[in-house]
């Protein structure tokens, strides 16, 4: 295996491709930097000049509104110039390869690429082939990683539960197809969370998932016992048609988060969801909108975390 493709020669962050394999000080530096940007996003004038004159290209090979928008807002609040490219609908359909597209945009003097792609490893591929002064941020590649989501989740957790070393966290739902779950798991275990659980039916768990350092549960009533943090995952509709689950109703009954199931967790437990939510499928509205939900703060913090990642990369 070659050296960590995310770090430069000085061990600093060159690209953000995955939360796996990043040293804890780098993760903590992102979280601390994000903390300082939360203030900016709450100000009247929501702009700092850190990335003035820099060009950031949002390369979305897979449709996304929410993630693309938060990256766009984050870049603009850092005073960068932002170009949004919805490539699913343009050059790829004309036969241009992924690297052709990237090379063309590099020639337009991009400083940073924010990449989303349906295939695992796409961001790694781009990072390996761009000029050394360009930084790549993975905004989601296949089932592999969505590191800024994982980071904003641990940022949110830290806001409510500052001591990672005393936490019990449960991730519930479609772990198999989830890049969010993978990024959450690596971030949580690196930051010293002693117990990370995954809860799902066997058809939604990848092989040897325990090797990622998690405890596996198939039963919500056991898995939620005494947890401090519940991280719910979105159940994509297409999973219904792949013989992995019989129905959304049965899924909701056994794996959907209701107030009743939530009461099995610690009294002060918080509930996260990366959005967009399927109310009545993986989460009941009463929980999503209830007092233990931190789902909306997640969205707010997401901008600060993305500002932090961009400013750190630009400074390295």
């Amino acid at each position: 295996m070659s050296n960590n493709p995310q770090l430069n020669r000085n061990g600093q962050l060159q690209h953000l491709l995955t939360t796996e394999g990043l040293p804890a000080p780098i993760l903590l530096n992102i979280l601390d930097t994000a903390e300082s940007f939360v203030g900016v996003t709450e100000r009247d004038v929501k702009k700092v000049p850190l990335l003035r004159g820099k060009s950031i290209f949002n390369l979305f090979f897979e449709p996304s509104t929410r993630t693309r928008t938060t990256f766009e807002i984050a870049a603009k609040r850092l005073s960068a110039d932002v170009v949004n490219l919805n490539i699913a609908a343009s050059s790829q359909s004309k036969g241009e390869t992924l690297l052709d597209t990237v090379n063309n945009l590099s020639a337009m003097h991009a400083d940073m690429f924010v990449v989303r792609h349906a295939q695992s490893g796409a961001a790694h591929l781009i990072a390996r082939h761009v000029r050394p002064e360009i930084h790549v941020i993975n905004a989601g590649d296949g089932r592999h990683a969505h590191p800024t989501q994982g980071l904003l989740d641990v940022f949110t957790i830290r806001r409510y539960k500052p001591d990672f070393r005393s936490l019990r966290v449960a991730i519930v739902g479609d772990i198999l197809h989830s890049r969010v779950a993978r990024s959450q798991i690596h971030a949580l275990t690196t930051l010293g969370v002693p117990e990370v659980r995954v809860i799902a039916p066997k058809t939604l768990l990848p092989t040897k998932v325990e090797r990622l350092g998690v405890h596996v549960y198939h039963d919500m009533t056991k898995g939620l016992k005494d947890v401090d943090v519940l991280m719910m995952l979105r159940l994509q509709n297409e999973r219904m048609f792949s013989a992995r689950l019989p129905s959304t109703e049965e899924y909701f009954k056994y794996y959907g988060l209701t107030q009743e199931k939530l009461s099995l967790a610690r009294q002060d437990a918080i509930v996260l969801h990366p959005g967009p939510m399927n109310r009545g499928v993986e989460i009941d509205s009463a929980v999503a909108d209830g007092g233990q939900s931190v789902i909306l703060p997640q969205v707010t913090f997401g901008i600060a975390v993305r500002m932090a990642v961009m400013s750190i990369l630009a400074g390295n």
Binding site: E20, S120, G142, R143, H144, T207, K208
Partner: peptide, 10 residues
């Protein structure tokens, strides 16, 4: 179908 595919999401 093993640890590497699970990590890499392949």
């Amino acid at each position: 179908d093993g640890e590497v595919a699970t990590r890499l999401g392949l």
